[in-house]
C-alpha cells in the first residue's frame, strides 16, 4: 500500500513503532493544548455567532438568530462599517510606512557605518515597550494644550493641532504611533535579510556594470522578497487586530473617527453584552485577514518566482 500524503504506513518494525510512540508523546500535550485553547474555541465562537447571547444567560438558552448577526453587521451596523474602513487605513498606512522606512533604515545601517549596534538599540526601544505605556506617553505628548509637540509647533508660529482629539487627525496620529512602535522591529528583520545576501551577487552585478540603484533593483529587492513577504504579512495581520493602542488613547473617539474593528468588538461584547454579534465580527475579520494574507502571499511569491 502506498502511503497517502496524510497517512503514512504504520511501520512494521518494533523499533520504528517505539519511535512513533515517542513522537505521539512529544506532540500530545502541545496539540491537546492547541485543540482546547484554539480549535475548540473557534468552533464555539462560530456557534455563538449564530445566536443572540448576553453572556449572562446559560449557553443552552441562547436564542437562535441564524445569519442575522452577519447581515446586521454588513448592512446596518454603521460603527462596524466605519471601523472596518478605519482599520484598513490603519493597516495600509502602518504597513506601507513600516515596510518603506524599515527597508530604508536597514539599507542605511547595512552600509559602512559606525555604531551600528547603538543605532539598532535606539530604534528598537519602542518595540519592547508595552503598547499601553506608549499610549499613555503619546496621549500626553500629543495633547492639544500641554503636549510637547504643540509646544514646539506653536513656538514655531504654526497653529496648534488637535491630533488625537481631532476627528480628521486622530486616526493619522494613531498610525504615526504604530509606525513609531514597530519600525525598529522591521529594521532589524530587513537588516538580517540584507546581511544574508552573499557579497558575490553584488560583485557579479558590478562586473555586469550595474550601478547602486540597479544592484538594489535587481539583486537586493528580489533576494529580499521572502523577508518582504514576512514583514508585510505579519505586519498586516497585527495591524488589522490593533486594540491596546486605541483603547488607551482615543477609545475610538471623536465620533468613532478612530474606532477599530477589535475595539468595536470589545465594546459590543462587554459594553453592549452582545456576544453573538461580537463573535460574528471576529469571523468577518478572520475572513478578511485570510483573504488579504492569501492575496499577499500570491502576489509576493509569484513575483519572486518570475524574477
Amino acid at each position: 500500500m502506498k502511503s497517502s500524503w496524510w497517512m503514512p504506513d504504520i511501520p512494521k518494525s518494533a523499533v520504528l513503532r517505539r519511535r512513533m510512540f515517542w513522537a505521539y508523546v512529544f506532540v500530545a500535550a502541545p496539540v491537546v493544548a492547541l485543540l482546547v485553547f484554539l480549535a475548540g474555541p473557534i468552533l464555539f465562537s462560530g456557534w455563538v455567532s449564530l445566536h443572540r447571547w448576553d453572556m449572562l444567560s446559560p449557553v443552552g438558552d441562547m436564542p437562535w438568530r441564524g445569519l442575522q448577526n452577519y447581515v446586521f453587521l454588513l448592512t446596518r451596523d454603521t460603527i462596524f462599517i466605519k471601523a472596518l474602513g478605519n482599520t484598513f487605513l490603519f493597516a495600509i498606512g502602518g504597513v506601507g510606512a513600516n515596510t518603506i522606512l524599515g527597508l530604508g533604515f536597514a539599507l542605511l545601517l547595512n552600509s559602512r557605518i559606525r555604531g551600528r549596534t547603538v543605532w539598532r538599540v535606539l530604534y528598537f526601544m519602542p518595540v519592547i515597550t508595552a503598547p499601553l505605556a506608549l499610549a499613555v506617553m503619546f496621549s500626553f505628548i500629543f495633547d492639544r494644550n500641554y503636549g510637547v509637540v504643540n509646544n514646539v509647533i506653536t513656538a514655531l508660529g504654526l497653529p496648534r493641532q488637535p491630533f488625537l482629539s481631532g476627528p480628521h487627525q486622530a486616526l493619522m496620529t494613531l498610525i504615526f504611533i504604530a509606525i513609531y512602535q514597530y519600525v525598529g522591529y522591521y529594521i532589524v528583520i530587513f537588516l538580517a535579510g540584507l546581511q544574508g545576501i552573499p557579497q558575490d551577487y553584488y560583485d557579479a552585478a558590478q562586473v555586469d556594470g550595474a550601478g547602486n540603484w540597479q544592484a538594489f533593483r535587481f539583486v537586493t529587492l528580489p533576494l529580499l522578497r521572502p523577508v518582504m513577504l514576512f514583514v508585510v504579512v505579519t505586519n498586516t495581520i497585527g495591524a488589522l487586530q490593533v486594540f491596546d493602542l486605541v483603547f488607551a488613547t482615543t477609545g475610538g473617539a471623536p465620533a468613532n473617527s478612530s474606532m477599530t474593528v477589535v475595539l468595536h468588538m470589545y465594546n459590543t461584547a462587554f459594553k453592549f453584552s452582545r456576544m453573538g454579534r461580537a463573535s460574528a465580527m471576529a469571523f468577518i475579520l478572520f475572513a478578511i485577514i485570510m483573504l488579504i494574507t492569501v492575496m499577499q502571499v500570491r502576489l509576493l511569491r509569484d513575483r519572486a518566482y518570475q524574477d
Binding site: 460603527i79 473617539a253 465620533a255 468613532n256 473617527s257 459594553k271 453592549f272 452582545r274
Partner: peptide, 21 residues
Amino acid sequence: AGGQEIKTLLQAEIEAVLAGM
C-alpha cells in the same frame, strides 16, 4: 434594557455634529 448601547450610539452622533461631520 439596551440603554448603554443607545447612549453610546447617541454619544457618537453628538460628537459627529460637534466635528461638523
